[in-house]
């Protein structure tokens, strides 16, 4: 019997830690599956992974939760600021009955969630030297956020003036002053050399960044239990390792950025958290959140 072909489309670059994780998965399941990894959004355009899976034209995808939320509004809860406190909380939530509920909604849309894939905690990175302790301090600061209204709202929720801009143009825009800042996990700040054109990193930790590694529901249901087990355990092992590597890297980079002469400090996170959660609860996003889910997720934090 021929091995099933699994084409995975992701937006991560070839030298990303996650690309290594996908290669490890492909290697680990090679006896059971012919898994082909297409990184850099070369196979399907960014944001089209979910519809491609739904239409049966793609087997696996690394899907942004914002993309899922476009179809399943309840999922916007996991894209909101200050929901998860760290990577462990993220994993605990997806392992809990809350995760089961979210995954069931995705399954109804034809997507089987294999794992949340952590890629770093988003921190505010600014060119101006102004000290930022409260969300009010970010008022009037033009901050680049990824395009789309969920992302732009995230910027508003921490008090900034969000503006969309292509990722490749952020460096120049920071340097020329077209924007005052941007938000990304520390490894991204390092890879894109943003630290050269900014003066400070405010450890707001406003969003635990993650994508969802998913496979076609129809395909998954057609697998034998052994095949499911093979794939799931390969995913679990590789993603656990990848998460740990991201955490180690982030810890390392704090010192690196300090050595580069940046101010790296923690603001009043409670103030940010209260401000953001209030903004979200007043927004149209919260209207679609299942009752009590925020509290249940909060309860899962250690």
């Amino acid at each position: 019997q021929e091995k099933p072909t699994l084409r995975l489309s992701s937006v991560v670059s070839e030298n990303d830690i996650r690309a290594e994780a996908f290669a490890e998965i492909a290697e680990a399941v090679s006896d059971s599956f012919d898994m082909q990894v297409f990184n850099g959004a070369t196979l399907v355009a960014q944001g089209s992974e979910m519809t491609s899976i739904q239409r049966g034209n793609l087997e696996m995808g690394l899907i942004a939760p914002q993309t899922i939320a476009e179809q399943i509004p309840a999922w916007s809860i996991v894209t909101s600021a200050y929901l998860f406190s760290d990577a462990a909380h993220l994993k605990a939530t997806f392992d809990s009955d809350v995760g089961e509920e979210l995954n069931a909604m995705a399954a109804d849309a034809g997507i089987h969630v294999l794992a949340p894939v952590y890629f770093g905690t988003r921190q505010v990175n600014l060119a101006p030297e102004k000290e930022i302790m409260k969300p009010e301090d970010l008022s009037g600061i033009t901050m680049r956020m990824p395009g789309g209204d969920a992302w732009q709202f995230l910027g508003e929720a921490i008090g900034a003036n969000p503006t969309p801009l292509a990722y490749a143009e952020v460096y120049t825009a920071l340097q020329t002053g077209a924007i005052d800042g941007q938000d990304n996990p520390l490894p991204n700040d390092y890879n894109m050399k943003f630290y050269e054109v900014t003066s400070q990193i405010v450890l707001t930790g406003h969003l635990i960044g993650f994508d969802v590694l998913a496979i076609s529901k129809e395909l998954w249901d057609g697998f034998t239990p052994e095949q499911q087990e093979t794939l799931q355990s390969a995913v679990d092992a590789a993603i656990a390792k990848s998460t740990q590597r991201h955490l180690d890297r982030e810890a390392e980079l704090v010192q690196f950025f300090k050595d580069e002469g940046l101010k790296v400090y923690e603001p009043d996170r409670i103030a940010f958290r209260d401000f953001a959660q209030k903004k979200y609860l007043e927004s149209e996003f919260a209207a679609s959140w299942p009752d009590g889910m925020v509290d249940r997720i909060n309860a899962l934090a250690e």
Binding site: V44, A45, Q46, G47, S48, S52, R55, G56, N57, G147, A166, A168
Partner: peptide, 20 residues
């Protein structure tokens, strides 16, 4: 033997997603 709409889909999503 694949879905022929993929070619159009690639064209549409590619154009839609390329702000530059």
């Amino acid at each position: 033997g694949q879905d022929m709409s993929i070619a159009f889909e690639q064209m549409l999503t590619g154009l839609y997603g390329s702000y530059v």
